[in-house]
Computed example of a mutant assay.
Amino acid sequence: MQSASESYPEIREGIRALCEGFPAEYHRKIDEARGYPEDFVDALTREGWMAALIPEAYGGSGLGLTEASVIMEEINRAGGNSGACHGQMYNMNTLIRHGSEEQRQTYLPRIATGELRLQSMGVTEPTTGTDTTKLKTTAVRRGDRYVVNGQKVWISRVQHSDLMILLARTTPVDQVARKSEGLSIFLVDVKEAMRKGMEVRPILNMVNHETNELFFDDLEIPVENLIGEEGKGFKYILTGLNAERTLIAAECIGDGYWFTDRATAYARERRVFDRPIGQNQGVQFPIAEAHIEIEAANLMRYEACRKFDAGLPCGAEANMAKYLAAKASWEAANVCLQTHGGFGFACEYDVERKFRETRLYQVAPISTNLILSYVAEHVLGLPRSF
């Protein structure tokens, strides 16, 4: 039986070939400099990988989330970090599924060629976190413009993006029947916004992940940049969030395989007391357990992708895939570090860099506790806990 990790061989071979041109030294230097892998993202774009989800009619490959997830997985398995570019993949779904035909014609072909990047999504706020329906950023219509005021936090890649998906409240919460109503999605011209009404403040963090705090002061957005129907934005944004969680699950799976591959190779080669350390069950068993958990998470990833691509509800599967994969990759990271001993802390082995990168996904883009709450309420039917 073919392993799930061996499916889609042409995509895997293509990404691996590209990644060979960006070895560990490249990613290590980018991390040391707290830089952005511009050349790497440009190469992915030139070869069409970043346009995987764009329909062929708009210049893309017309692939599904399943194939996109394999692309993300392979980048991480090769030692890279898809966090530099994955935003374009999941943000794309919001525009493709809910944008007007005019919007798709205007933006998608230019995104496919790399003329434009859609890498950023502005949802999270300092005082609301994942309680999205209580966000305070407002967009008030005045003639042919919406005027935006408010604040966002942990908004990634905005400094390396031309377009941003923005969620804001267009109807006050006390004027809607349900608090999930009255929220709308806009497509923001980032460079124009930075000149007129949007301030960007970088947030330094333990991972070399470009993320920012945004401040909106009477930012004007053209009415034609509203995506879909006014007030329906929360429903639309779930499309992107389910894609995001599934793609990040795939990235964690790629990380997990990277960790177990490295741990296995080191355990074969490292000799202590005249025998390879991998001959000892105390070393073997944790690596084997990590591999088993990654393989299991992989199956849930493919189930979430299958449902998403079929247009079926997939919130439970997307959340569970993200939970299982993030947990498996973090456990594999610990095993890899422990297997390497002191050498695992040396930057030249890349274990510590990947260790930091995969740790993020216990917290973002949705924490493990919130996933457990989601499953308890929406799958098991238990009372809402918050």
Results as ranks from 00 to 15, higher is better:
77 R>A: 08
10 E>C: 00
336 C>E: 03
305 C>G: 00
370 L>T: 08
51 A>M: 04
238 L>P: 00
43 A>C: 03
151 Q>P: 02
109 P>L: 06
272 V>C: 02
232 K>Q: 14
358 T>Q: 14
27 H>N: 07
296 A>S: 09
26 Y>V: 10
29 K>V: 09
82 S>N: 08
302 Y>I: 05
208 N>L: 03
374 Y>E: 11
67 E>L: 00
146 Y>E: 01
89 M>Q: 15
107 Y>F: 13
280 N>C: 12
367 S>I: 08
357 E>L: 09
104 R>C: 06
71 I>L: 14
240 G>D: 04
172 P>R: 07
73 E>M: 12
327 K>G: 14
273 F>D: 13
222 P>F: 05
289 E>M: 12
240 G>F: 01
14 G>D: 08
317 E>C: 03
289 E>Q: 15
53 L>W: 08
373 S>A: 14
250 A>T: 05
349 Y>W: 15
103 Q>S: 00
257 Y>C: 05
2 Q>T: 13
142 R>Q: 14
299 L>Y: 07
22 F>P: 06
152 K>M: 03
136 K>G: 09
115 E>G: 07
82 S>L: 05
219 L>E: 06
272 V>M: 05
320 M>R: 15
232 K>W: 06
267 A>E: 02
129 G>E: 06
127 T>N: 14
194 M>A: 05
386 F>W: 15
171 T>P: 04
50 M>P: 02
277 I>E: 03
386 F>Y: 15
301 R>Y: 13
143 G>H: 07
155 I>H: 09
86 H>C: 09
307 K>R: 15
303 E>T: 08
341 G>T: 01
27 H>K: 10
167 L>C: 07
266 Y>A: 01
298 N>M: 14
306 R>H: 09
207 V>C: 09
365 P>L: 07
375 V>G: 04
176 V>R: 08
51 A>W: 04
238 L>Y: 09
38 E>T: 13
257 Y>V: 11
344 G>L: 02
227 I>V: 12
340 H>L: 12
225 N>V: 00
206 M>H: 12
263 A>T: 04
25 E>R: 10
368 T>G: 10
187 L>T: 00
373 S>G: 11
26 Y>M: 06
12 R>L: 07
356 R>F: 12
294 I>G: 00
255 D>L: 09
358 T>A: 10
323 Y>P: 07
308 F>A: 10
2 Q>E: 12
379 V>D: 10
281 Q>D: 13
130 T>I: 14
383 P>N: 09
265 A>I: 01
25 E>H: 06
334 N>C: 07
377 E>M: 10
318 A>T: 04
114 G>I: 01
240 G>R: 01
243 A>K: 05
188 V>C: 01
214 L>K: 08
35 G>S: 15
92 M>C: 10
2 Q>S: 12
13 E>S: 14
135 L>F: 05
220 E>F: 08
119 Q>G: 02
86 H>L: 12
94 T>I: 15
326 A>S: 15
239 T>R: 05
283 V>S: 03
16 R>M: 09
191 K>E: 05
81 N>M: 10
250 A>L: 04
312 L>T: 07
192 E>L: 03
386 F>M: 12
105 Q>N: 14
52 A>H: 02
345 F>C: 09
324 L>E: 12
25 E>Q: 11
48 G>Y: 04
305 C>K: 04
113 T>Y: 00
199 E>Q: 13
118 L>K: 03
249 A>V: 06
159 Q>S: 12
286 P>V: 04
313 P>K: 07
